[in-house]
Simulated assay, not measured.
Amino acid sequence: MSHTVLLSGPPGCGKTTWILSQIQSYRGPSGYLRVTGYPDEGLAQARDGGLDLAYLRDQCPDLLDLGDLDQALAPHPADLLALIELPQFHPPAQPGLAGVDRRVMPQLQALHLNPDRHLHFGRDPELPRQDTLDFSHLQAWSLNLNATVWDPDSLSSFWFELVNGAYGDVYRAKALMNLPDGRAFFCNWMVSQEGSQFLPLQTLAPPDGRPERLSRLVVQGRDLDPAAIEATVRDCLLSDAVLELQQAPLRQRHTPPTRSA
């Protein structure tokens, strides 16, 4: 029997982390959908751009993308666990399914998804509460970084500056970042945490030019300076020439020796 859970909560409360734990502990097929949340007075929703889905599918390659129309129209497996993530700033006025934001239902119905359970961070006791913050004002900004590769030392310096107020009061930051050796990291920070998470992706890109996978930076906070963030980011990215200088030795190291005649 399939089971569809709608999980809502404010930025950085742990929705994606909780969803990952459910997928990893479930023995049957799983699917995921992130629904775009709705802004509130003075509170802007972030443009995820597929960031959470990309990370979850790296960790769980068989995960179904429930936002894919072809998969939505195809029959779902009988024992599918469908997990829907909805950014939502304030707790629902009513418990359970009665508290689901009615604005989201047409999108779910178009994808043949009908939640049979609704959990909200900060309301339901089975969910963690330590990162559930009440925001009174929140800006959101994101930057598409597809096909970019970071200088590793510059990435560390930039991230430290970002979360420590160099570009405004950042409350939430997450990103997927590519490195020249083919690795990528899911970078995650919340103001209520003691430090940042730098979680390596399982999939490696060949050290042969720019990777094709999604790369993106998402920032939420107050008094943000997007122009300064973007300018610093551009200074931290590798040019084609420098990228080739760093990748060429890596390719030679993995090239099998040629037999002599």
Rank of each mutant, 00 (worst) to 15 (best):
S2C: 10
T4D: 12
T4P: 11
C13T: 09
G14T: 02
K15F: 12
T16C: 14
T17Y: 01
I19S: 02
I19V: 11
I23F: 07
I23C: 15
R27V: 00
R27C: 01
P29I: 05
P29N: 05
L33C: 05
R34I: 06
V35G: 04
T36P: 08
Y38L: 07
D40V: 02
E41N: 06
A44N: 04
A46I: 02
R47A: 05
L51E: 00
L51K: 00
Y55E: 10
Y55P: 02
R57F: 13
L63S: 08
L64R: 09
D65G: 00
L66E: 13
D68G: 15
D68M: 13
L69M: 14
L69G: 04
D70F: 02
Q71W: 09
A72W: 00
A72Q: 01
L73K: 12
A74M: 10
P75N: 05
A78N: 13
A82N: 06
E85K: 14
F89C: 02
P91S: 10
P92F: 06
A93E: 15
P95Q: 10
G99M: 04
V100E: 10
V104Q: 13
M105G: 01
M105V: 09
P106C: 03
L108V: 00
Q109E: 07
Q109P: 03
H112Y: 07
H112V: 03
H112P: 03
L113H: 09
N114Q: 09
H118V: 15
H118G: 05
L119D: 11
H120K: 04
G122E: 08
R123N: 11
E126W: 07
L127V: 04
L127T: 02
P128R: 03
Q130G: 04
L133D: 06
L133T: 15
D134C: 12
S136E: 08
L143Q: 15
T148W: 08
V149N: 13
P152H: 02
S154Y: 13
S157V: 14
L162N: 14
L162Q: 14
G165I: 05
A166K: 08
G168L: 11
V170A: 08
N178Q: 12
N178P: 00
L179F: 08
C187N: 05
C187Y: 14
F198W: 04
F198L: 02
L201Y: 15
Q202G: 12
L204Q: 07
A205F: 00
P206Y: 06
P207I: 03
D208F: 10
G209A: 15
L214P: 01
R216H: 02
R216V: 03
L217Y: 07
V218D: 03
V219K: 11
G221E: 00
L224S: 00
R234K: 13
C236R: 13
L237I: 15
L237A: 09
S239M: 02
A241M: 09
A241R: 14
L243K: 10
E244Q: 07
E244H: 15
L245E: 06
A248F: 01
R251D: 12
R253E: 02
H254Q: 10
H254M: 09
P257C: 00
R259H: 04
A261M: 03
